[in-house]
């Protein structure tokens, strides 16, 4: 089993936005999805997930609605707004620009 770590700082918002692109999810599912997509490498702490979700709500990037899950449980589902979609693209582009820059530095220094 790969070692579990927390989410790198500053990327949580981007990842939440990114996983919401494919449809509305509730809080637990967001954490699960990130965990799965990272091949169990990343674990989203509840202590940082919920403040992040509140920030997204305040910024108007996501909206929340109560729904009933497949297992019949009442859950609060988050979905991207148009502004959120734009923000997601911007953040992903920025992150890729940054990480390719970092990679270039690492490669050059070898």
């Amino acid at each position: 089993m790969p070692r579990e770590t927390g989410v790198p700082s500053g990327t949580l918002i981007m990842m939440v936005l990114q996983v919401l692109r494919h449809g509305p999810l509730h809080g637990y599912a967001i954490a699960q999805r990130i965990h799965l997509l990272s091949k169990d490498a990343l674990r989203v702490e509840e202590g940082s997930l919920y403040p992040a979700l509140q920030k997204l709500l305040m910024e108007g990037w996501v909206k929340a609605e109560w729904a009933v899950s497949d297992s019949g449980r009442k859950v609060r589902e988050y979905s991207l707004t148009a502004a959120g979609r734009k923000q997601c693209e911007a953040e992903v582009a920025e992150y890729e620009r940054l990480s390719s820059a970092v990679r270039a530095v690492l490669k050059g220094a070898k």
Partner: peptide
């Protein structure tokens, strides 16, 4: 109220709710 209910639901879905904190 929403936040509290939501967190409660999250906790209930976890395999080990005690990890929620």
């Amino acid at each position: 109220r929403d936040l509290a209910e939501e967190m409660e639901a999250h906790r209930a879905m976890m395999d080990t709710p005690a990890h929620f904190g």
